[in-house]
Design a protein around this nucleic acid. Structure first.
Ligand SMILES: [Mn+2]
Ligand SMILES: [Mn+2]
Ligand SMILES: [Zn+2]
Ligand SMILES: [Zn+2]
Lengths: 215, 215
DNA sequence: TGTTGACATAATAATAGTTACCATGTACTT
DNA sequence: AAGTACATGGTAACTATTATTATGTCAACA
């Protein structure tokens, strides 16, 4: 009845790659690594087996901050620390001194089966970066949200690049065959991405990041 | 420079609904509530404003287990407990007695900005349910994964329903114009859903759940 | 020992949750 | 009042995950 696990080659490789990896990889980080050994493996196979292996107790599936689940080869009791900027996850060992247990009258009627402790902050790498660039705030490297340019955004940005001085949205509208409203809307988006600056009210110019984004 | 927040009607309603709600709703739970007051509001507006309001510090965005982000109107320091079965989230108050702080030599070079504590287990409601149905395990109510039937699954299940006794996949293959391999595959899926049982090796019959699923 | 079917896989479609885009609407500033 | 900043609704696109299914592999039994 207690079905035993069939140890396929794929499973062996997944396990061994996870074991080599001390970074709590996500499913697709692991997929990228496994693919080097087994180029024909499917992403679904990785997901399926991570699920099966964690249910079998050979690995642990972590619930950590961020959207993606992460996997841990280390089965010992330990906690984690999470970088809010690059989403890296490291181990933390509280040395048993804090085995938080919840007094029954505090548990709100729950049958408590465990407790998860997670510290968060900036990892060493991200601390350095943060010190250098005091302006980009925490937006930059984290997601695709900033980098791309839509067609309209590119059109407006190219028009701005051609201007010698800061200019108003009317000028851009004339140069691009877009409605002034549309231009205003695009400029707002471009400002958010840091590609456009406003040296004076209603005057805009392309930033060096903006020029870089065009090429 | 510190841009002030424009308090639109939509934002007021979102805030007040969140305030009335002590259940740490997800974005779309909140959307359903807000829609009763503002039927024309867009889901995107709810998401956008939850993000903005939490960045402004008027509400808190929670990182809890499960896929969805949740929102909390209570800004005081407190922790949470999570039901692994129905995903409900309740408040826990550790009364400051555990302000876990990480000794510097343990922080792995991180600049720690906080700590999140989350208990998990079964909420009172789910404890009762679990006691009654000792067989469905924890699979049942949680996601859509079990309920539906694909065309092929339905075809096989209907053929099984017509059989008086348990029968082999060959018989089904004959009755359905499907290849035996395909039948075997569908039966596996149907067994996983609990719609088919196997009284003897290589013999299958439809379960009462299976009959219910057909109608 | 050849069949059969349990279990796995690769490829891909489907889904859930969230975010991006943009035309249009509303409200500040001067 | 004009002109811009900010906000919204509708929808497309995206990311992470799960489901489906044809096909492959192998162990157990007839
Ligand atoms: Mn770990
Ligand atoms: Mn709370
Ligand atoms: Zn980092
Ligand atoms: Zn529950």
């Amino acid at each position: 009845m207690d079905k035993q696990l069939r140890m396929t080659h794929q499973r062996e490789v997944i396990l061994s790659e996870l074991g080599k990896c001390h970074t709590h990889p996500t499913a697709d980080e692991l997929y990228e690594r496994v693919k080097k050994k087994l180029p024909r493996i499917s992403l679904a196979t990785v997901y399926r087996n991570l699920e099966i292996l964690s249910e079998a107790g050979l690995i642990r599936k972590l619930e950590v901050s961020g959207r993606q689940k992460r996997f841990d080869w280390d089965l010992r009791q330990h906690d984690h620390i999470y970088c809010v900027r690059c989403h890296r996850v490291d181990n933390i060992d509280l040395e048993g001194k804090k085995q938080l247990s919840l007094p029954a009258h505090e548990s709100r009627g729950y049958k408590v089966s465990g407790c998860r402790i997670e510290f968060f902050g900036l990892c060493p790498g991200c601390r350095k970066i943060q010190q250098k660039t005091r302006k980009g705030e925490e937006k930059m490297g984290c997601k695709t949200c900033g980098t791309g340019l839509s067609d309209k955004q590119r059109e407006v940005l190219e028009a701005l690049a051609k201007c010698k001085d800061a200019c108003g949205s009317k000028d851009i509208a004339a140069a691009t065959s877009l409605e002034p409203k549309q231009v205003s809307c695009q400029i707002t988006a471009l400002k958010k991405k840091g590609y456009v600056a406003s040296p004076a009210r209603c005057k805009y110019e392309i930033t060096s990041e903006g020029k870089a984004a065009l090429s």
